[in-house]
Amino acid sequence: LQLFIKTLTGKTFTVEMEPSDTIENLKAKIQDKEGIPPDQQRLIFAGKQLEDGRTLSDYNIQKESTLHLVL
C-alpha cells in the first residue's frame, strides 16, 4: 500500500509498504529514501505516536493514508 509521509517543513514523499510491515520497517524505508536515522523519527497517525513493534494494520493504516514525520 502506498503511504504519504508529510514532514513539518511541508515536504511530502511516498513509500510503498505492506499492511503486515512494522513501524520499524517503515522507519527503515524512510531512512533509505530520506537518510533520516530511525531513532530520530517520530511518526504520528490520527493523533497517535506509532510504536516500532506494531504493524501498520494494528493502527488501521490504509492505502494512501498520510503519516506525519516529526524529527
Results as ranks from 00 to 15, higher is better:
D58K: 03
E64P: 05
Q49D: 15
Q31C: 04
E18D: 13
Q2G: 06
D58I: 03
I61G: 02
D58V: 04
S65W: 04
D32Q: 12
L69M: 06
E24L: 15
Q2W: 14
E34I: 11
K63S: 15
T7F: 14
N60D: 12
D52A: 07
E34R: 09
F45R: 03
A28D: 09
G47D: 07
T7K: 13
L8I: 13
Q41V: 07
M17D: 01
T14N: 08
I23L: 05
G35V: 02
Q49G: 06
T22R: 06
L67G: 02
V15T: 03
I44Q: 06
F45H: 07
T66D: 04
Q62R: 09
P19Y: 12
G35N: 09
Q40E: 11
E34H: 09
T7W: 09
E34W: 10
T9N: 15
T7G: 06
E16A: 12
G10Y: 03
S20Y: 13
R42G: 05
Q49H: 10
I36R: 03
D32T: 11
T7N: 06
E34M: 15
L43M: 03
Y59H: 03
K11I: 10
L1R: 04
L3V: 11
R54D: 05
Q62A: 10
V70C: 04
L43T: 01
L56M: 06
K29V: 13
L3C: 03
K48I: 15
Q62L: 10
I36T: 10
D21H: 07
I30R: 00
A46H: 15
E51M: 12
G47H: 07
V70G: 05
L50G: 01
L3G: 01
T12Q: 09
E64V: 06
L50K: 00
L71F: 09
E24N: 09
T66M: 07
T9R: 08
N25D: 10
G53P: 07
K6Y: 08
K29A: 12
L69W: 02
L8Y: 12
V70S: 07
Q41A: 04
K48V: 14
L3A: 02
A28W: 10
V70R: 07
F4C: 04
K11W: 08
L8G: 15
D52S: 07
E64A: 09
Q2Y: 10
T66P: 03
H68A: 06
I61H: 02
L3I: 14
R54E: 04
A28T: 13
T66Y: 08
L8S: 13
D21F: 04
T22D: 03
S57R: 14
K29T: 10
D39Q: 13
K33Y: 09
K27D: 00
Q40C: 04
D52Y: 05
L69G: 00
K63N: 15
K29L: 14
K11V: 10
I23N: 01
Q41G: 03
A46N: 15
E64Y: 15
P38R: 15
E64C: 05
Q62G: 13
F45M: 06
M17H: 04
L43A: 01
V15F: 07
D39H: 15
G35H: 09
F45I: 05
E51A: 07
L56P: 03
D32V: 11
I61F: 06
L69V: 05
I5R: 00
L3W: 01
Y59L: 05
N25M: 15
G10V: 03
E51K: 06
A46D: 10
V15E: 01
E16F: 15
Q2L: 14
L26S: 00
D32E: 13
H68Y: 09
A28P: 01
N25W: 10
L69E: 01
F13A: 02
T9K: 13
D58T: 05
I36V: 11
L56N: 00
K29S: 09
K63T: 13
L3D: 00
D21Y: 03
G47W: 05
I5T: 00
L26C: 02
R42C: 05
H68S: 06
D21E: 08
P37H: 12
E24H: 08
K6E: 11
V15G: 00
P19E: 12
T22V: 06
M17E: 01
L50Y: 01
S20P: 04
E24D: 10
F13N: 01
T7E: 08
R54I: 06
L56H: 01
T9P: 06
P38L: 15
V70D: 07
